[in-house]
Design a binder for these strands. Sequence first.
DNA 1: TAAAAATGTTAAGTTTGCTTAAGTTTATTT
DNA 2: AAATAAACTTAAGCAAACTTAACATTTTTA
Lengths: 208, 208
Amino acid sequence: MNKSLEDYLKNIYSLQISAGKVTTTLLADRLNISPAAVSDMVSKLSKSGHIKNTPYKGFDLTKKGETIALNLIRKHRLWEVFLLEYLKYPWENVHSDAENLEHASSDDLILKLEKFLGFPKFDPHGHPIPDKNGKVNKEKTIAAADLNIGEAAVIRQVSDESSEVLIYLSKIGLKLNDEIKVLEKINFDNSLQIHFRSGNIFLSEKLA
Amino acid sequence: MNKSLEDYLKNIYSLQISAGKVTTTLLADRLNISPAAVSDMVSKLSKSGHIKNTPYKGFDLTKKGETIALNLIRKHRLWEVFLLEYLKYPWENVHSDAENLEHASSDDLILKLEKFLGFPKFDPHGHPIPDKNGKVNKEKTIAAADLNIGEAAVIRQVSDESSEVLIYLSKIGLKLNDEIKVLEKINFDNSLQIHFRSGNIFLSEKLA
DNA sequence: TAAAAATGTTAAGTTTGCTTAAGTTTATTT
DNA sequence: AAATAAACTTAAGCAAACTTAACATTTTTA
């Protein structure tokens, strides 16, 4: 399986989750390459039936493309579990090494790894792990920023792509499945004051 | 680290162990590419100081090249241990998946994997695992074919590159560290009759 | 030892996935 | 709605790692 193809599809997948149709610049920024390169590849992926493209308008995955993307995400998340639980990686470092391993793993290897890990359902950041047929448990989640004052919630997921954020969260002691409650919204800078287990903290807009 | 570079160096390493100076065709056959491609890369690797090349005569690794080769072999063998012992791979299948994982593993990942595995000294085929500084325990070994009649020996290594051979060995029940004794050499086809734990078997020339 | 065979190198061309530059299309502003 | 800006695509070109074909060197062998 081609690394470049897989990376395109995986990133299109995660962008379309947050943004619906994906645009050239968005993907180019994500992959750190020029928009021209993306445009080029997009027309190839379109011809090969992995995405559906409307020139100048955006594109999204076909079933065929989604299957490959989900399979790669499955590999990524299972490796993350292994790196954290067995190799004792710090929380914030699992992402980048899993990024390489995912492309080097046959489907059969991943089946065996999954069994070894005891068929985990979530990765260390709380994201669901697709099964071997590409089925995912889509949990309803909400961004902390979208909670109202006084509302309580449980931390189910954190974004795994910025290790700085994860370092900060471990420093303040915020963990997965912690319950939080929004105390105050500061309109000035869109930050939040929240309450959790051991006290009150502020979350900036981005983090929330 | 570049996959192609690593593969060249690793294969030069293993060829020079068995053959001294490595030739273009030998390496081309091993990598399944044209001699022209090898010739090309050889002059690059020579310029970059990874190998020492004498045109038309052959080439071998410099210290710098050997360090990279050994580090890759280290990664390969540690993954083999993991695949066999933890993921329960059949003996004969560990090689090909390790071949992919080795290129996708940072040095730090491999340190953590090594620790998790309990610092094994040999891979499942009996080959020594280089340490993080590239030190290898070179055991003296001898090919079965080079034993004399009546001589006994212990199986320490088997070649890991042909899964067919490994399947055959498990079928006849021959394992690492089994003691064998050469009963007879048949000059006709250079096969051997050997005795081990549970009986007598024939080994063809290639296998021996 | 000279011709033939085998092996090695160089040159020219291909593919993949990028880049920059130029040209299009769409969106925004006034 | 025309001008400007932003986003997108197309074109030309590059680097890596191949290929095949042509040429060079070394080895074999008659």
